[in-house]
């Protein structure tokens, strides 16, 4: 079975889903992430779904469960990169993903989590207001 890698970058965990996941792969990701949150003590999880051309109710529910489990483990989850057609379809399907925070891309997701130790990762020149620069970067 394929597996979705969970990467630790600075203070956060980054998951970029690049495959059309079987349901079991999605459930495995849920478990792997919970383990990794505890093992690393991270407070932020970014899940990049920009490569997914659909999100059905199973994947949507898995994302919601991941967000809830993360919260219980003192970490915040931001789902980033949803395609416009996927957003339209999800809402029409009846899934508005309540309880899931979203951002348009990874950079904005990181800014949303407000991780302090990541300013170096975001290629910040402005040392006075690193967080603000991160948010407004194109």
């Amino acid at each position: 079975m394929e597996r979705v890698p969970v990467l630790k970058i600075g203070d956060i965990l980054l998951v970029s889903i690049q495959i059309d996941m079987e349901d079991q792969v999605a459930l495995q990701l849920q478990e792997d992430l919970a383990d990794k949150i505890v093992a690393t003590g991270t407070h932020g999880v970014i899940i990049d779904i920009s490569a997914l051309d659909i999100v059905d109710s199973f994947v949507g529910r898995t994302l919601a469960t991941i967000a809830s489990v993360s919260r219980v483990l003192d970490a915040e989850t931001v789902v980033v990169g949803m395609r416009p057609a996927v957003a339209i379809t999800l809402v029409e399907l009846g899934l508005s993903l309540p309880g899931i925070r979203t951002a348009l891309n990874v950079e904005l997701g990181i800014a949303m989590i407000g991780t302090r130790d990541l300013s170096g990762l975001l290629d910040d020149e402005d040392e006075d207001e690193p967080d603000q620069a991160a948010v407004t970067a194109p």
Binding site: D53, I54, D56, R83, P84, I88, T89, L90, E92, L93
Partner: peptide, 12 residues
Amino acid sequence: VDQTKIVTAASE
């Protein structure tokens, strides 16, 4: 958008 909808419906 319609591709996305039909693939999603088929998945369900």
